[in-house]
Design a binder for these strands. Structure first.
Lengths: 201, 201
DNA sequence: CGGTAGATTGACTATAGTCAACACGAGTGG
DNA sequence: CCACTCGTGTTGACTATAGTCAATCTACCG
């Protein structure tokens, strides 16, 4: 694909910033990207993570608007850049490509709607349990049942939509109840059923 | 357009229910539709309203999934039904149609992301103020500055993501502060600037 | 070895949810 | 015509949940 250029990025690098113009999207070859919005008081709200095979930045490209989120590397990544004009061109001439993208956008929309309902209606405890299950679903566990994504307590709080201290207290509680084990940022899931129950899904 | 059929619906009618299969989408000719999800405890979370010119149900059609929301008539409506196969066909053969839909999905996605951040980070007071401003933006005011959409207190609560009683108390507060006036379900906005300030946008 | 970022804990507070009682008006059926 | 019910709105009292602030603690890094 002569149109694609690949780039390497390291943890902490910012791919694009909320409010900036972007000229294309990126397809993730490897690594993990954190996509977040910044609230009025400066607090991050993590919207989602993107991993290998996923596409970021397409919303701004199609709407021809400034980015409404910031994309930052969580784990060293390789990304392919795809120019906006190419994306638009492909959508216009290739019906299947258009359908794929539409399905992608609709999938994210469905997830966003669930997220809204959860944040609006569930307790922080329920949401944290659910977030752990989602992370397990998306990133899996290694052979020792440890979540294959490393997040600070603050980042966890910024997914759940709560204060860092609340996450810390709840994680300790889950640990007390033998649902998880903690070792620094490593979170080991030992009682999946209990977690599902806590999440109240 | 021989493919289109139009239907009349009355307040309270349900167009489709969360979990059900739908075979096409509806384009709103007139009226207002309430789109909501039901949380685990049965509480409605209103995701958005659709009014004349807007399209509902396309997410399920493109993803070929059960509906993830319920669509219910808030104000008597006329809707055009568009079969799913036609939508998919048009996306595949008409590049501009595909782009339009993609832009629509992306627009909703951007709004959903903002909504997530707001619910996660703002207080109920701020969110209620913001909701009133959004309703004004989307449905306008009549000549007496009254919001052109009539919602129960419970529905307001189900947009904001809070308890009915909290909405009632906050509306009374806004009234005390001469920001709005209330007459049953009619909400008159008298101090827009104060409302914006409260919403902390 | 000092410095820094992140993690943890305790104490306190505020925000918002719950529960219960009551008000009010629109319809309904005796 | 009147009692009644139902849905909605309102208010008060209480409670619980979660946020804030401050003090440490820890690990890692230069």
């Amino acid at each position: 694909m002569s149109y694609k250029e690949t780039f390497q990025f390291r943890r902490g690098n910012v791919i694009y910033t909320e409010g900036s113009r972007i000229t294309g999207c990126y397809c993730v070859s490897s690594g993990i990207i954190k996509i977040y919005k910044t609230g009025t008081d400066g607090k991050e709200q993590i919207i989602r993570f993107a991993k290998a095979g996923e596409l970021i930045g397409f919303r701004s490209v199609f709407n021809n608007e400034a980015a409404c989120t910031t994309a930052q590397i969580l784990e060293d990544s390789t990304l392919c850049y795809i120019p906006g004009e190419l994306m638009v061109h492909l959508v216009k001439v290739n019906g299947n490509f258009a359908m794929d993208l539409l399905q992608l956008a609709c999938k994210e929309l469905g997830e966003a709607n669930s997220y809204i309902t959860d944040i609006a209606q569930k307790s922080v405890r329920e949401r944290l349990a659910e977030v752990l299950l989602n992370l397990k679903e998306n990133f899996g566990l290694n052979q020792s049942q440890v979540l294959q994504i490393s997040l600070t307590r603050e980042e966890l709080a910024n997914i759940v939509g709560t204060a860092t201290e609340s996450v810390i207290r709840l994680l300790s509680e889950f640990k007390e109840d033998k649902i998880i084990e903690l070792q620094g940022r490593q979170i080991k899931i030992i009682n999946n059923a209990a977690l599902s129950k806590l999440a109240n899904i």
